[in-house]
C-alpha cells in the first residue's frame, strides 16, 4: 500500500483532466458543477482510500459517476440553445464545437470519447473508469468516433 499524498497533489496533477472529461461528458455549462461535486466526493472518501496506485483513474471514475448522476437528474435535456451561444462567446479554445457533438453521444460512447481524447487515457484505464472490459471500452470508443465522423461529414 502506498501512502496517500496530500490531496492538493491530486488537484495540481489531475484537475485539468477531470474538467476536460466533464466538459466532454456534460457540456461546458454544467461541467463546473460536476467538477465541484467530483472533487468534494473524492475529498470526502480520500482518507479511507486503500489503493493509491491509480489516483487519476479513481478521480475519473468519480467524475464519470457524477456525469451520469447529472444526466439522470436533468433527464437528458435537449441541448439548450442559450448554452451553446454562451459557449461560443466565452470559449477561449477553438474546438470547432466538437465537444458539443461529443456531448450529444449516448452516455457510454460519450464517456469513452471524452476519456480517450479529453484525458488521453489508454483503453485499460477507460475500461476501469467505465467499469467495463477493455474490449467493451474499445467498442464504445469506436462506435462514438464512427458516429461523430458521420455527423461531421
Amino acid at each position: 500500500m502506498t501512502a496517500l499524498p496530500p490531496f492538493q497533489t491530486l488537484l495540481d496533477e489531475h484537475a485539468g483532466d477531470v474538467m476536460g472529461v466533464l466538459r466532454g461528458a456534460v457540456g461546458r455549462g454544467d461541467a463546473e458543477d460536476c467538477f465541484q461535486e467530483t472533487f468534494l466526493a473524492a475529498l470526502q472518501a480520500y482518507p479511507k482510500l486503500r489503493d493509491a496506485s491509480n489516483l487519476r483513474g479513481w478521480l475519473l471514475t468519480i467524475a464519470h459517476r457524477k456525469a451520469i448522476d447529472h444526466h439522470r437528474a436533468s433527464g437528458r435535456r435537449a441541448v439548450p440553445v442559450a448554452e451553446v451561444v454562451e459557449v461560443a462567446v466565452s470559449d477561449p479554445e477553438p474546438d470547432d464545437g466538437i465537444w458539443e457533438k461529443v456531448g450529444g453521444l449516448p452516455p457510454k460512447q460519450r464517456a469513452a470519447v471524452a476519456l480517450r481524447y479529453g484525458s488521453d487515457l489508454p483503453h485499460s484505464e477507460i475500461a476501469a473508469a467505465l467499469g467495463c472490459s477493455p474490449e467493451a471500452a474499445r467498442r464504445s470508443l469506436h462506435e462514438g468516433i464512427k458516429r461523430l465522423r458521420r455527423e461531421l461529414a
Binding site: 501512502a3 496517500l4 499524498p5 496530500p6 490531496f7 492538493q8 488537484l11 475529498l43 480520500y46 482518507p47
Partner: peptide, 15 residues
C-alpha cells in the same frame, strides 16, 4: 513536510 503532515494528521491537505 506536506507528505509528512498527510501521513501523520490527514491526507486532506489543501492549499
Amino acid at each position: 513536510v506536506l507528505e509528512d503532515l498527510a501521513s501523520r494528521i490527514s491526507p486532506r491537505v489543501l492549499e
